[in-house]
Nucleic acid binder design. Structure first.
Length: 526
RNA sequence: GGCGGUGUAGCUCAGGUGGUAGAGCAGAGGAAUCAUAAUCCUUGUGUCGGGGGUUCGAGUCCCUCCACCGCUACCA
């Protein structure tokens, strides 16, 4: 027997300098849905998220708060774990870059990189000197030409962050030697490496434009992973941060069971701001260390709030806990993935949120379940109806239901632009609409008086369709679909996708139905 | 400056290899009454950003211009 197919998916680790916002929730949500889908689909899944806790910015923020860096990060990291709980994320591991295992992994990857040669036969790492304008807030160096001078006489980066002149010895990664290797990898080795296409084009264009060596150590601060055998040097935060994906599987232990099982990652989901780190530096680091690069990196877009760019200074940050409190968790999960094509920017508005909630969830799906289950409770003995021979229309909609999971699977993992959450949900709703049409056309309320056997068959077809819909939607809205499956009397052991092959057993008692998605009423509507 | 992308119904967007434009939402009308006043049906005369070209025929190919967005460079 071959092993079950495996699936390793990661969110980025989140920088603890930031309070959790909708962007964090969105990224990890996408991972969560894929992880849940793959588990139900029979794959062995590893889903990783966590926090990024090193760097000068954290060091300074901790000092400002009058705390030791570790105490500071303990506190802020907890906010992200709370968010994961509130969003019902199903990660298998939550990594923190301040953990001992991660220090070991970073030092291990450093040593592996240092031990190997570039494709051109040079040392991967060499000691040099870095001087330049550095912005602590951005963790980045800037060219003098990019800077502007503010009214206070201070120089600022394009981002608005203050910069300071820094001269320090630094170890460099010979990225310039990896340019051809990277291009070969993007174009032939792994054409699906970067999604969506627009980001892929940008990365190719960037790499074709020429790569310069990358400074990968700092001496100006202490809050980081010490470089092996180089007193005073700590690792560049991105080398540190990216390595988390390997740490969590037990790297660099050559016998680490998880690493052998799950490496390389099937998918790194990232925001579009960190594409370069994941698609240029990361595969180069890994290749230099003699490890396999990830199979795919997908970058999603940004949210605006009621049409406006979100920023702390505007004070319009969207706070996930507030959304959940107002609309409910599953409607929020649904909205985020349904409203906008994954990869593109999107707008969050109260109007759009309520539109999805009332139209898609309450009216289309929630009401479908309620009208069918309510009818059965009142007029069909409150049990799974006994079907007779299926008519052609029955077979047609049942066939569509049976094909649903396959269509969704293809959109989430097979299609060239995968994952396409919004199209997957569209596909589910095409069936929901068809089911509502089916109810109207078959009119069980009329059959009740004229043909009880036919009524029973029609109702059976409908609960079967509902069962398929509920099973396939579990990854998106776990709690709500659990409730619906309870109402369909589907046992816990029959909720994976293998169970799609089964059928509801006629005569099984059904509990009293209650609405899954109540309509959202604005104060004005009450 | 270079590379890439976008511009199609009020809104959000689909529209392989060219053949007189589609979906969802919103709006209007109707049917039905099992249901969370939910559902279902019908309903769009749109300069397909502007102009030019190729073609019997172009959102769909070519050129050009305009607007907006992303990545990136440089002169200074």
């Amino acid at each position: 027997m071959p092993d079950r197919a495996r699936y390793y998916i990661t969110s980025p680790i989140y920088y603890v300098n930031d309070a959790p916002h909708i962007g964090h929730a969105y990224t990890t949500l996408a991972c969560d849905v894929l992880a849940r889908f793959m588990r139900l689909d029979g794959r062995e899944v590893r889903f990783l998220t966590g926090t990024d806790e090193h760097g000068q910015k954290v060091e300074k923020a901790a000092a400002l708060a009058g705390m030791a860096p570790k105490d500071f990060t303990d506190k802020v990291s907890q906010n992200f774990r709370d968010l994961a709980t509130a969003m019902n994320f199903s990660h298998d591991d939550f990594i923190r870059t301040t953990e001992e295992r991660h220090i070991r992994a970073c030092q291990g990857i450093w040593q592996a990189i240092a031990a190997n040669k570039t494709p051109k036969g040079n040392a991967n790492i060499y000691l040099g000197q870095y001087d330049g304008w550095y912005a602590v807030r951005d963790e980045a160096f800037y060219d003098e030409k990019e800077l502007t001078t503010g009214p206070d006489g201070k120089k600022r980066a394009p981002s608005g962050a203050e910069v300071e002149w820094v001269v320090e010895p630094s170890y460099f990664f010979r990225l310039s030697d990896w340019q051809e290797w990277l291009l070969e990898y993007y174009e032939r080795g792994n054409p699906d490496f970067i999604g969506p296409t627009t980001r892929r084009n940008e990365v190719l264009s960037f790499v074709r434009g020429g790569l310069t060596d990358l400074s990968i150590s700092r001496t100006s601060f202490k809050w980081g992973v010490p470089v092996p055998d180089a007193p005073g040097h700590v690792m560049y935060v991105w080398l540190d941060a990216l390595t988390n994906y390997a740490t969590a599987l037990g790297y660099p232990d050559p016998n680490a069971a998880l690493f052998r099982r799950f490496w390389p990652a099937d998918l790194h989901v990232v925001g579009k701001d960190i594409v370069r780190f994941h698609t240029v530096y990361w595969p180069a680091f890994l290749a230099a260390a003699g490890a396999e690069p990830p199979r795919r990196v997908f970058a999603h877009g940004w949210w605006t709030n009621e049409g406006q760019k979100i920023s702390k200074s505007l004070g319009n940050v969207i706070e996930p806990h507030a959304l959940i409190a107002r609309y409910g968790l599953d409607p929020v999960r649904y909205f985020l993935l349904r409203e906008v094509p994954f990869g593109q920017d999107g707008d969050f508005s109260h109007r759009a949120m309520v539109g999805r909630l009332n139209s898609d969830l309450a009216n289309d799906l929630g009401n479908l379940a309620q009208r069918v289950l309510g009818f059965i409770a009142k007029n069909a003995g409150a049990e799974v109806p006994q079907p007779g021979a299926f008519a052609a229309v029955d077979e047609e909609i049942l066939a569509e239901a049976r094909g649903l999971c396959g269509r969704v699977r293809a959109l989430l993992a097979g299609a060239p632009n995968a994952p396409e959450f919004h199209r997957a949900l569209e596909a589910v709703w095409a069936l929901v609409t068809k089911a509502n049409f089916f109810v109207d056309k078959q009119a069980p309320w009329t059959l009740r008086k004229t043909d009880a056997a036919r009524m029973s068959t029609v109702l059976y077809v409908l609960v079967e369709v509902l069962r398929h819909v509920a099973l396939v939607l579990q990854p998106f809205m776990p709690d709500s679909m659990a409730k619906l499956l309870d109402q369909l009397a589907v046992p816990a052991a029959a909720r994976d996708f293998a169970s799609l092959e089964r059928r509801l057993v006629a005569g099984t008692a059904l509990p009293a139905p209650s609405g899954i998605f109540p309509r959202f009423l604005d104060d004005a509507d009450r």
